[in-house]
Design a protein around this nucleic acid. Structure first.
Length: 472
RNA sequence: GGUGGCGUGGCCGAGAGGCGAGGCAACGGCCUGCAAAGCCGUGUACACCGGUUCAAAUCCGGUCGUCACCUCCA
């Protein structure tokens, strides 16, 4: 049961071989907290949550690091754009958005990473790497900035297999002291109009780190110079990850053994972008469906594929998830009071594990899950309680690994008193309806059912009595 | 110009030489007072053209279409 993963750098699937037996060190690029999270950010975090859960299920001790980039040109720009005297500070803005990200992750059941470092807390490590690069001749200081000298590093372009001479000329707005267009900033000297508290001292003058160096420094600090997996969105391969590899390896670090990239989320076939104004933000998306449905939608596709969101996407996810939920509820009801009641969580089926081991094959794994639901429902119809209990245990185990167990307390809304009141009202109406049915007054019975339906409550009659649910 | 994806039935979405994953929708049946849910059944799918092979959606060559990245991006 070797876990296999698609290594973007090798462009091939490979057996995962950890650096240290039984342990996984994984670094994932988190967001630059310069605006509200959109559903692409949620998907990215979810992908690595699933990887982490799967490695953990397979017995690995996982250290997951996902950074927060809390100092960046865009953050400073966001502040100055709406700047009024006494207005919001750059660090306040960064933290405000960081909280929004955290709220989105939490609602989706994305487990907190082992460490979630902020870039501003690792400036010392960044300066250290930059100094090593200067000392070894791979970086140069110029006009208060420090640049990586791409010409000095023959491997430059190894991740995306591009040769610098074939790259489109960069429309660099402010080349300052750059020797070549491909060179990128490791350190950015403070400009006069920038806040003084957004810069740090360095041998090259006051300034702040470039974007790429942050991840090299934080991964090194929390996972060491060599670690197992580096992840991030597909759009980060170039330039961000290309530059990370260049600066870390040029500084003498082995860096990541495997590179994993998640696919992006499109809307109606188009990439989300500010200019198109088609971005779907996490907060509004979570208004459209229950968080567990959003998790199912974002997590059901293979992690490397592009997800296209369109009208009806959430309804499909909801229907599929309801199938799992309905089975679990039926099974619990049927098993109550039997010797199978409350029977435990079973092992996951072998086919599910095989699918997950193969580069996190969630879609196939979901196929196994739905097959088990079907078999469980059939057992329910046949009264084969042992089979029902076993299917129930397996479904629970599989949905738990994927973080989509509909019965898990984490998805329950915090409205217990209102729920109790509603439940009592509905139960009373159902009792009236069943009295009418017993008296063969079907007109009255149907009227009650219609009234409940109009209120969004579905009633179903079965061998264990009449049951109701909120029809979302 | 360079680099890398993708094209599967009404829709979504896996798979990767030989038995049609799975979900949604549809249709028929069972069950039901009627429903709903559930179960059983129903589909001659793999962009196009060549080639390899006993066998190709899958491998090879080409064509078309489409998307992403090429220094802001999850």
């Amino acid at each position: 049961m070797t876990v296999r993963l698609y290594d973007t750098k090798a462009q091939a699937e490979a057996d995962f071989v950890p650096l240290v037996e039984g342990k996984v060190g994984m670094y994932v690029c988190g967001p630059t907290v310069q605006s509200s999270p959109h559903i692409g950010h949620l998907r990215s975090a979810l992908v690595y949550d699933l990887w982490r859960r799967w490695f953990t299920y397979r017995g690995y001790d996982v250290t997951l690091v996902r950074n927060v980039t809390d100092i960046d040109d865009k953050i400073l720009a966001a502040v100055s754009a709406g700047s009024i005297p006494g207005g919001e500070q750059w660090w306040a803005l960064a933290y405000r958005y960081e909280l929004e990200f955290t709220a989105g992750y939490t609602r989706l059941g994305i487990l907190p990473p082992t460490y979630e470092p902020r870039a501003t807390a690792s400036i010392g490590e960044m300066r250290e790497i930059i100094q090593r690069l200067i000392d070894s001749g791979h970086a140069y200081a110029a006009a208060g900035d420090v640049y990586f000298d791409t010409a000095s590093w023959p491997n430059y372009g190894e991740l995306t297999r591009q040769k610098p001479e074939n790259m489109e000329a960069a429309g660099d707005a402010d080349p300052r002291g750059k020797r070549a267009a491909q060179d990128f900033a490791l350190w950015k000297g403070r400009k006069d109009d920038e806040p003084t508290d957004a810069s740090w001292p360095s041998p090259w003058g006051e300034g702040r780190p470039g974007w790429h160096i942050e991840c090299s420094a934080m991964s090194r600090r929390y996972l060491g110079p060599a670690f197992d997996i580096h992840g991030g969105g597909l759009d980060l391969r170039f330039p961000h990850h290309e530059n990370e590899i260049a600066q870390s390896t040029a500084a003498g670090d082995p860096f990541a053994s495997y590179w994993v990239h998640n696919g992006l989320v499109n809307v109606e076939g188009q990439k989300m972008s500010k200019s198109l104004g088609n971005s779907i933000f996490a907060a509004e998306f979570l208004e459209l469906a229950r968080p567990i449905v959003v998790r199912y939608f974002l997590g059901a596709a293979h992690y490397r594929s592009t997800i296209d969101y369109h009208d009806g996407s959430l309804a499909e996810a909801e229907a599929a998830l309801d199938r799992i939920e309905v089975f679990l509820t039926r099974a619990d009801r049927r098993l109550a009071g039997t010797k199978f009641a409350g029977s435990g969580v079973e092992l996951i089926p072998e086919a599910f594990g095989a699918a997950m081991d193969d580069d996190l094959g969630v879609p196939q794994a979901l196929g196994v899950l739905h097959e088990t639901v079907r078999a469980g429902n059939a057992a329910l119809d046949n009264g084969d309680l042992a089979a029902v209990a076993s299917a129930r245990g397996e479904v629970l185990a599989m949905s738990e690994v994927l973080g989509i167990n509909p019965l898990s307390p984490q998805w329950k809304a915090d409205s217990a008193p209102a729920d109790r009141a509603l439940g009592q009202l509905v139960e009373t109406l159902i009792a009236d309806r069943n009295a009418a049915r017993a008296a063969k007054d079907f007109a009255a019975a149907d009227r009650i059912r219609d009234e409940l339906a109009a209120a969004g409550i579905a009633v179903e009659d079965g061998p264990t009595g009449s049951h109701w649910s909120i029809d979302s």
